[in-house]
Design a protein around this nucleic acid. Structure first.
Lengths: 169, 169
DNA sequence: GTTAAGTACATGCAAACGCATATAACTTGC
DNA sequence: GCAAGTTATATGCGTTTGCATGTACTTAAC
C-alpha cells in the first residue's frame, strides 16, 4: 500500500470528561467515527496503485461529466491548493488524469480522467465500496444510515459562507 | 480520502444521484461533512501556537487523568506511529508534554501534559469549542445533534477494534 | 536460561505537505 | 488602453508524513 490515510482529526472541547454543549459531543463523535473508519479502510489491501487521497481526486473527477477546474476540485478535497496542484501534476505524469488549458479562462486548467484513470478508479472504487458497505451496515441499521446521510448533508452544505465577520459570541 | 461531494454547480448536476448502497451514500456524506467543517475550523485564527493535529494530541492527553502510552494515543489519532512518535518528540521539545519511561514496561513511554501544555490546550480548546458549537448548531437541531452523536459513536465503537484483515488471496 | 517470536517506540530517507510567494490572466476604474 | 486589484495555478523551501527498518524490551517455548 502506498500512502493511504489520514487527514487529521481534531477533537473539541476543553478537556473535561464531556463537553458542555451537545454540538461538541456530536463533533467529537463524528471525528472518532471518521478516524476509526479511515483506519479500517486504509488497512484494506486495495491501495497499491493509488493512495486514498489520490483515489479521492479520481473519484471526484469520475463524478463529473465534464472537465473541472483545480479550484473546483479543491472545494471537495481536504488538501491545500499547492498540494492539490502537485498531486494533479503527479497524476498527470502517471497518465491517470489529463490537464488541458481552459479555452474560456487562460488562467485555468480543465481536468479530466484518462481512460486509464477511469479504469483504476472503477476497479478500486468497486472494492472500496464493498468495504464501506460491509463496515457501515455492520454497525448501523438502514434507517440510521439514512439519518446519518441526511444530517451529514446538512452539515456539509452552506459551508463557505460564514468567513471572517464578527458574529462574535 | 475525502468524500466526493455533490455540492458544486459543475459537479454531478443531475444523474448519478447515488451509490448503489445507502451505506456508501452515508459514508460519502460523512466525509463531506468532515471535510467541510475541518476547512472551516482550520480557517479560524486560533492555530498559531499548535496545529489542529497537535491540538488533537493535547486534547486526547487532557482527557486522560493518568499518563498514557504512545500506542494508546495512536488509537485515537489518525497518524502513523512514526509520525506520532515524532510529533510527541516535538511537543516534548516545546515543553507542552512530558515523556517518562514506563516503570512497568521498559519498552513503553508514559505521556502527560505539562502545565504549559494544559494551559495551551485549555485556551485553544475554549475557542475551538465555541466555533464548533456555533457551526454545528447553525445547521442542526438539538435532536439532530443527539442523533448524530449516537450514530457516530456506534460507528466508532466496534469499528475501531474490528480487525477483519483477511481477503488477501 | 537460552533462543525465538512479538511488542513499543525510534530513526533513515524519499515523498508529500503547508505557507509564502511568484506568475499569468482576467477584471475594474479611469 | 493602462495601472491596480483579483483570481487561478505553480514553485521555492522548510517541515511533516509514511514506509521500511532498527533497537530495546517482553513474552513464549523449550
Amino acid at each position: 500500500m502506498t500512502g493511504p490515510v489520514m487527514t487529521g482529526p481534531v477533537m473539541t472541547g476543553t478537556g473535561a470528561s464531556s463537553s458542555r454543549h451537545p454540538a461538541n459531543d456530536a463533533w467529537e463523535a463524528l471525528l472518532s467515527a471518521h478516524a476509526a473508519l479511515m483506519k479500517q479502510f486504509a488497512a484494506e489491501e486495495i491501495w497499491a496503485e493509488v493512495s486514498m487521497r489520490e483515489y479521492d481526486v479520481l473519484y471526484t473527477l469520475a463524478k463529473c461529466r465534464e472537465p473541472i477546474r483545480i479550484s473546483e476540485l479543491h472545494r471537495h478535497v481536504l488538501l491545500s491548493q499547492p498540494a492539490l496542484s502537485r498531486m494533479v501534476d503527479r497524476l498527470v505524469r502517471r497518465g491517470l488524469i489529463e490537464r488541458e488549458p481552459d479555452p474560456a479562462d487562460g488562467r485555468g486548467v480543465r481536468l479530466s480522467l484518462t481512460s486509464a484513470g477511469r479504469a483504476i478508479q472503477r476497479q478500486v472504487g468497486r472494492q472500496h465500496a464493498r468495504s464501506v458497505a460491509r463496515d457501515m451496515t455492520a454497525r448501523l441499521s438502514r434507517s440510521e444510515l439514512g439519518q446519518l446521510e441526511a444530517i451529514c448533508l446538512k452539515l456539509a452544505s452552506t459551508t463557505a459562507n460564514d468567513e471572517s465577520e464578527g458574529s462574535r459570541q
